[in-house]
Design a binder for these strands. Structure first.
Length: 190
DNA sequence: CATGGGATTGACT
DNA sequence: GTCAATCCCATGC
């Protein structure tokens, strides 16, 4: 989508990204899990302010923020809200729809539900790495597009974010109810 | 300049 | 259930 889609409150964008499609170089998947992060709360990388690492987070909406996690993995975010506001949606899980065999080769696994069911897994499956940091999500190489018809109105559950130690009370995680490709089961409903 | 800690995953007890 | 891998960044001395 165009930058205007992302130029809104990050929690709103996180919810609406459920059902949208992420693609890169022939591999694609439907977003089934997302989380919102905002510079006003300490779980967000942008909480520390503008640094070299957070430059993209504070930049224009509609760009990819890709960072290294635990020294090993890459995680993909969509930057939201106007320039000067550090906010992004972490893409946590996809349901594979295209390029499944290439994803299997990259992951070294067979089962479709194991290919993209986690933030580090989906970047490996799609070939996303740190070089993609800052790329325009409308122009690529990583592209996010509107929902396919069958995903028009997925039932979405809200719950607490996963894997963080600060601001754990916020229910800023969103899941497509019933998907078998979530990183963890969805709990509460919204 | 040294150090600690991750928005995780997969292998192992 | 526990735990190591691995490295960049932010913090503190």
């Amino acid at each position: 989508m165009r930058p205007a889609f992302y130029d809104r409150p990050v929690v709103e964008v996180a919810r609406e990204l459920i059902g949208c499609v992420v693609s890169r170089d022939g591999c694609a998947g439907v977003i089934v899990e997302s989380e919102a992060y905002h510079h006003s709360e300490p779980a967000c990388h942008a909480f520390v302010g503008l640094t070299e690492r957070t430059r993209v987070l504070f930049g224009p909406p509609g760009r990819a923020y890709v960072y290294r996690s635990y020294g090993i993995h890459a995680c993909l975010n969509a930057v939201c809200e106007p320039p000067g506001v550090g906010a992004a949606v972490l893409i946590r899980a996809l349901e594979p729809v295209e390029g499944v065999d290439l994803m299997r080769a990259r992951r070294g696994l067979e089962r479709v539900q194991d290919l993209c069911s986690g933030p580090g897994k989906l970047t490996q499956a799609l070939g996303i790495w740190l070089e993609d940091n800052g790329c325009d999500l409308a122009a690529g190489p990583i592209v996010i597009e509107r929902k396919p018809r069958r995903w028009r109105a997925p039932q979405v559950a809200a719950s607490k974010r996963v894997g963080i130690t600060k601001a754990t009370e916020l229910e800023w995680r969103f899941c497509a109810v019933g998907s078998r490709c979530l990183s963890r089961p969805a709990f509460s409903r919204a």
